[in-house]
Design a protein around this nucleic acid. Structure first.
Ligand SMILES: NC(=O)c1ccc[n+]([C@@H]2O[C@H](COP(=O)([O-])OP(=O)(O)OC[C@H]3O[C@@H](n4cnc5c(N)ncnc54)[C@H](O)[C@@H]3O)[C@@H](O)[C@H]2O)c1
Ligand SMILES: NC(=O)c1ccc[n+]([C@@H]2O[C@H](COP(=O)([O-])OP(=O)(O)OC[C@H]3O[C@@H](n4cnc5c(N)ncnc54)[C@H](O)[C@@H]3O)[C@@H](O)[C@H]2O)c1
Lengths: 210, 210
DNA sequence: CGGATAATGTGAAAAAAGTAACGAAATGCT
DNA sequence: AGCATTTCGTTACTTTTTTCACATTATCCG
């Protein structure tokens, strides 16, 4: 199943929560399409791929659809996540409350610098040495890498050794991982570069215009 | 030109810097392909779309290719960027040194909370009221949104009113923007959800397997 | 110097993703 | 109840993206 499809499912889900809080009890493919910026066909096709069906004229029932999407996406169950690196970015993530409403909970952070222990809110910042054992004991499946580039591969290796299956990586390098390990990279410099390219091109050199 | 192509160009560029620092003077499409995880054909096709050419047997000269990529991507010129919101995420961004090596500089941050002024390093945190004028006077073209969801659309509107053309948005909402404005969204909860889906599926319900 | 080789550049083929179109079924209205 | 209407679900089509394949040409080496 394509990654893009899954991303859209998450977006539908978020849109549905907004519709729900607005008092909607049913939605049409048009509504969802507008909400996330795709065509109604796309919505229906995405749904049909997962056997999500509505009523021929009544659209989709918001609560049912939400329940099914949460089940498909795994967001009906709680997921515990750890963070490696409690520096600038790591502490921002630790303090963020927004993950919990998606049923995702950061349970611990790990850093080689012990002094980071204090300043990161409620979530404990533990010594990095303890990470692998913590991961194993608590059956953690997802880890976030927020350490400097040079340390990222090593951290990934330790995560995998502990049994982690998915990594969200903020370091601007390509991690070498075992078969079956899922890695999503967030490269912010690259996002900015990308924006810069697209705002420069239209008035730009003439190169690169199709 | 496709966004994905541009992202790959940025990746090639990063890989090339690493090759350069390793002493490489020329590279082949194979090297670049391995480095960023695509096929050699893809590399050559990407390059050919921008008239980037190498030598039939000697590959590509690293320094020349880098110069051309930097020109195409706009990274040969410095770009000034502002941040709205100097909270957890905003301050992490402000303190990050990594953007400067891509010739991107955060010149100011803006927050409605004046007390944020102190704790954000060298870059000044100014009152949000001053943002629009600052953007205009300094000809800022790119803004980063790191304010709470509810404030994000308003911040985007002010940015656009000041003349900003590209937005990197961390708030988990879809911004409504004028024609021609480029928006890149970074939705971290969604990235985590996505990872969770893909690590759950293989052993999962059997649903959703193609 | 000339043939062997290795790597490019590109057009054609394949695959993937997205869009449109339309029959079928549920709803509401008279 | 019957009819008109609306919206789904699915199939067929279009567009985009990626991969393949190979002619072309620069380089190496005897
Ligand atoms: N801060 C940002 O806004 C930002 C933006 C883009 C990318 N990034 C990337 O995110 C990562 C983290 O950035 P940051 O600004 O938080 O850096 P930082 O230097 O503030 O924090 C890194 C933390 O990792 C810890 N650390 C170092 N080596 C470690 C190891 N082997 N094991 C465990 N912990 C270790 C350090 O003690 C430090 O606390 C970097 O790879 C950076 O390139 C950050
Ligand atoms: N912190 C994270 O790790 C994280 C993760 C995912 C998403 N996000 C998103 O990033 C955004 C920022 O998150 P955060 O954790 O830094 O929040 P935060 O609450 O720490 O910081 C938000 C800052 O924005 C300021 N602000 C509020 N309204 C404003 C306005 N109208 N104009 C200017 N400034 C204003 C506040 O004073 C505050 O300093 C949010 O949209 C959040 O959903 C953050």
């Amino acid at each position: 199943m394509s990654k893009h499809t899954i991303i859209r499912l998450s977006r539908y889900k978020n849109a549905l929560y907004r519709f729900e809080s607005l008092g909607f009890v049913k939605v049409f493919s048009d509504n969802l399409a507008d909400a996330i910026g795709v065509t109604p066909s796309q919505v229906r096709k995405d749904f049909s791929m997962f056997g999500l069906s509505g009523n021929k004229r009544g659209g989709y029932k918001v609560d049912e659809l939400l329940a099914k999407l949460n089940e498909i996406l795994g967001t009906n169950k709680a997921h515990n996540v750890i963070v490696a690196g409690a520096g600038n970015l790591g502490s921002a993530l630790i303090k963020y409350k927004g993950f919990e409403k998606e049923n995702i909970k950061i349970t611990a952070a790990f850093d080689i610098d012990h002094s980071k222990g204090e300043r990161a809110g409620e979530i404990p910042v533990k010594p990095f040495d303890e990470m692998q054992e913590y991961v194993r004991q608590n059956d953690i499946r997802v880890g976030i890498i927020a350490v400097p580039d040079m340390a990222a591969q090593h951290v990934a290796d330790v995560m995998m050794a502990g049994g982690i299956k998915g990594i969200l990586n903020f370091a601007p390098i390509r991690l070498r991982v075992d078969e079956g390990i899922v890695v999503n990279n967030v490269n912010l410099a690259l996002e900015l570069e990308n924006i810069i390219y697209f705002i420069c091109v239209p008035m730009g050199s003439g190169k690169g215009i199709k």
